[in-house]
């Protein structure tokens, strides 16, 4: 026992690598433990099971005439459904060749060219663009216009001018029949 009382340096024990190892492993285990304990407190903020369970929405397209649009609610968000006119389809296709901020052809954005179905939330900061109701400002490209910070969308819902970085999003949807669509 008297050995241990000797001043260090006289009989220095070379256990540096052992200590380093213990220090690192203890530290790692503590960090993993802390992260595991923190996760429930972070993850509780994510959508709860009942919020996630929000069902899909079915829409009857029958009453929507050419040149008309409707807005339906899906997961608390507006979804724009537009029955496009042939001129709108034509101008959307013509613009396929141009260099757009977020390049996409019209064909990539629709399943049936007559029906343009998009999430009606501006990809800039989440306002609802105007243009889905008659008489509203449709912007410089004849589609939609977001008044919040001035984003212009074309007849395919593609961003053409303004601060929004991407085209209006396309939700998942399937045509149940010719006149019924299921969103989600």
């Amino acid at each position: 026992m008297s050995d241990t009382a000797k001043p260090l340096g006289d009989a220095e024990i070379d256990d540096k690598s052992k200590r380093d190892f213990l220090f690192t492993t203890t530290g790692t285990v503590a960090a993993v433990g802390a992260a595991a304990a923190a996760w429930p407190f972070i993850h509780q903020m994510n959508p709860a099971a009942d919020t996630l369970a929000l069902s899909s929405t079915e829409v009857d397209l029958g009453p929507i005439e050419e040149g008309q649009s409707i807005t339906v609610v899906w997961r608390g968000k507006p979804v724009f459904i537009r029955h496009r006119t042939s001129t709108e389809i034509k101008s959307a296709r013509e613009d396929d060749k141009k260099v757009l901020p977020d390049n996409e052809t019209d064909a990539e954005r629709v399943k049936n060219p007559q029906w343009l179905i998009m999430v009606g939330v501006c990809t800039h900061l989440g306002c609802i663009p105007l243009g889905n109701k008659g008489g509203e400002n449709k912007g410089e490209y004849g589609g939609w216009f977001c008044p919040c910070h001035g984003s212009h969308y074309d007849t395919s819902g593609r961003i053409r001018r303004g601060p929004a970085p991407t085209n209006l999003a396309i939700p998942e949807y399937t045509f149940v029949s010719d006149t019924r669509v299921k969103i989600g």
Binding site: M45, A48, T51, R75, K77
Partner: peptide, 11 residues
């Protein structure tokens, strides 16, 4: 995560 949902809502 901030919303606790898919838009600003009750959560």
């Amino acid at each position: 995560l901030l919303w606790g949902g898919f838009s600003v809502d009750n959560p």
